[in-house]
């Protein structure tokens, strides 16, 4: 017992003695903080950590990732909006908090266009539509014919209500002219369980999440959502090719507080864009189901505005209407 107490007190003492030293070093140079507004553990979080590593080597400064979760990414985004615009705080975010939320939440506490400054587009990815054993269709045309013949069965699952696959499904539903019912799951994995067992006929989600089961022949990907074919399933046509004018991709971008100086933003933009364009990084991103991009701040800003306009009608038609 005595020995245990001795150890505990020794460790406590060491911690107390070392703490001021550590905070002293921090005072000299604050670490750069990349806020990722969703939980640790997913693909986006892994991306944040990859970028942190790149910034660390390029700037020779400590870079930390903070997972500030809450309210569909609002909490983390708000934290960045409210931080000092000195280049020490960055936001890595998927599309929703900076493109969709202003059309979803009436009382959004920030304006994603005015309160944030775009830094660089990091990567993007597309969606795909897949059918399971409940539908005999082998092509998009056959699926549409089946939906028209069985309108009460035309339900589609997605990884969650209020996310892009949901809204993309709305676009598709409108383009085809069948009233498809949306079934929101908690993540792609659960939607796939029901798709494979035939409980639901159709799933719309990212191509990556569908890929494995498509290759095993348990489900069939019928079309992908980008303007060009997916490198993951080049044999599958796009919606556009088949005559449906619906295009949609999602992406990850880095943003900074609005008043961050331009020279800092440009410097980070170059570092990050150059980093994701290396072969090694491209490969790492592809493993996460992401295509490496990179961009100037202006290009990201343009994309942000374009996409906000693109999704607005789909959001309004989706019935996803939170009050706050």
């Amino acid at each position: 017992m005595k020995r245990i107490f001795a150890w505990v007190s020794a460790i406590t003492l060491a911690a107390v003695l070392l703490a001021p030293a550590a905070s002293h070093a921090q005072l000299l140079q604050q670490p750069i903080k990349i806020v990722f507004p969703f939980a640790a553990g997913g693909g986006g979080d892994a991306l944040a950590r990859l970028l942190a590593e790149e910034l660390r080597t390029a700037l020779n400064r400590n870079v930390v990732v903070e997972n500030k979760t809450g309210a569909g990414g609002q909490a983390g985004t708000l934290e960045v909006v409210n931080s000092a615009p000195n280049g020490d705080t960055l936001l890595l975010t998927p599309i929703a908090p900076v493109v969709l939320h202003q059309n979803i939440y009436k009382n959004l506490r920030y304006d994603p266009i005015k309160d944030l400054k775009p830094v660089a587009l990091i990567s993007d990815f597309e969606f795909a539509i897949a059918v399971g054993p409940a539908v005999p269709a082998k092509t998009l045309e056959e699926l549409i014919a089946w939906m028209k013949a069985n309108p009460t069965k035309a339900s589609y699952g997605t990884p969650g209500a209020g996310a892009l696959p949901h809204f993309f499904g709305v676009l598709f539903s409108k383009a085809v002219g069948v009233d498809m019912v949306h079934i929101g799951y908690r993540g792609s994995a659960l939607a796939l369980v029901d798709l494979i067992s035939g409980q639901i006929p159709i799933v719309v989600t990212t191509t990556t999440d569908l890929l494995q089961n498509h290759k095993e022949g348990k489900i069939r990907i019928l079309a992908t959502s980008d303007s060009k074919r997916s490198p993951l399933v080049p044999e599958v046509p796009t919606f556009q090719e088949r005559g449906y004018k619906i295009v949609g991709t999602a992406w990850y971008g880095v943003f900074a507080p609005a008043k961050t100086p331009d020279e800092v933003v440009n410097r980070y933009s170059k570092i990050l864009s150059d980093a994701v364009k290396t072969e090694a990084m491209k490969e790492k991103l592809l493993k996460l189901g992401l295509y490496a991009r990179g961009s100037t701040p202006e290009e990201l800003g343009k994309l942000q505005k374009e996409h906000a306009d693109l999704w607005k009608p789909a959001i309004e038609a989706s019935g996803f209407k939170p009050e706050n």
Partner: peptide, 20 residues
């Protein structure tokens, strides 16, 4: 929390911190 299908806040008393 927020309603799973519509995203509407339920019983959060308008508190941002309770929206999840």
């Amino acid at each position: 929390s927020a309603d799973v299908d519509t995203g509407q806040s339920r019983m959060t008393f308008g508190k941002f911190e309770l929206s999840d």
